[in-house]
């Protein structure tokens, strides 16, 4: 029973970590740009495809098969590439909705998500089919008599590290100060010789790159990736960011852990829980927002008189 409990806890933490990486992007983009980038999940899931393609290209040319270096290199390539994809999508589409009503950007990015998915499906070789995705780390360690995959610890560790780095960057660097300045008021930031357009591009890069790590972990944790996996990942990441409070990084973490928690809890304890896992996750979303209308850690909506 203890082993089972530990297993559930591990599942919860790993899922929560992966969702956090995606939710952080939503939160960051909303905080800085006031934009809902609904295709963020789909962009994140581009990363595992880049990894697969790069690994293939590497081992067929320079590196020997099943070399760890190929995988590590490919992940780095994918993170950077997907960061650039985010910047590109912003430049092509999303920036045109900066001053439009929030719902327009939301609808446009839903369509953009479909475009990203269908592009993967069309242009990745046999993109309709699911692709096996390797475990980043295969071995496991044993605590007592409980085997814990190193990969799970790795996911949790990297997520914690990413969160720490993001907090560092936002709180203690010049870049972070600039980002926060633009988030606060882009016009006044401009007066302070900060170019909002550059900050927007940097924000998109960071958000998409962090999302890419989430996407790679997601694929690696599932063991498989398919072009449409980004839909649910995006929806859950978005929900996590919103119930945590958009614009709050702590909120994104909290929201992710909550949603992953209810998902695991419902499946572990209810007889028919698995079929209702989405029902409970989204009822939780409704409940949280009824009680805390701007998310758990979101700034309350000010009614100025």
């Amino acid at each position: 029973m203890d082993a089972q409990l530990a297993q559930y806890l591990m599942n919860w933490l790993v899922l929560g970590s992966i969702y956090t990486l995606v939710a952080l992007g939503f939160s960051l983009l909303f905080g800085v740009l006031d934009v809902i980038h609904f295709s963020h999940g789909d962009v994140s899931i581009v990363a595992p495809f880049v990894v697969l393609a790069t690994v293939q290209a590497l081992i067929s040319t320079v590196l020997p098969a099943d070399s760890i270096a190929a995988l590590v290199l490919a992940c780095a390539v994918a993170i950077v590439a997907v960061g650039l994809v985010g910047v590109l999508l912003d430049w092509l589409v999303i920036r045109r909705f900066r001053n439009a009503p929030a719902m327009m950007a939301l609808v446009a990015t839903v369509a953009l998500g479909t475009v990203v998915r269908e592009l993967i499906r069309t242009f990745y070789p046999q993109g309709s089919n699911p692709k096996p995705f390797p475990r980043l780390i295969e071995s496991s360690v044993t605590f007592g008599d409980l085997p814990v995959p190193l990969f799970s610890l790795f996911v949790i560790g990297v997520s914690v590290l990413m969160v720490a780095v993001l907090f560092m960057v936002m709180g203690h660097t010049r870049l972070g100060v600039r980002i926060r300045a633009v988030a606060e008021d882009r016009n006044i930031a401009r007066l302070m010789a900060i170019r909002p357009d550059r900050i927007f591009a940097v924000t998109f890069f960071i958000a998409s790159a962090v999302g890419a790590i989430g996407g790679i972990f997601f694929a690696s944790y599932a063991g498989v990736v398919r072009f449409d996996f980004g839909v649910q990942l995006g929806l859950i990441g978005f929900s996590a960011a919103v119930i945590g409070g958009l614009g709050s990084m702590q909120g994104a973490i909290l929201g992710s852990l909550l949603i992953a928690g209810i998902d695991t809890l419902v499946q572990a304890t209810m007889a028919d829980g698995a079929s209702y896992r989405l029902v409970f996750s989204f009822l939780l979303v409704i409940l949280v927002l009824v009680l805390k209308p701007s998310g758990i850690l979101g700034k309350p909506i000010m009614v100025k008189v």
């Binding site: 029973m1 089972q4 297993q7 559930y8 599942n11 899922l15 997601f218 944790y221 599932a222 498989v224 449409d228 996996f229 839909v231 649910q232 998902d263 695991t264 499946q267 572990a268 028919d272 698995a274 079929s275 896992r277 989405l278």
Partner: peptide, 21 residues
């Protein structure tokens, strides 16, 4: 046990853990 999961589920570990027990 019977575990039916919504289409699009990619993580079966919670269900599998229960089955293991």
């Amino acid at each position: 046990s019977t575990d039916l999961l919504p289409v699009g589920t990619t993580d079966f570990r919670a269900a599998l853990t229960k089955i293991k027990g």
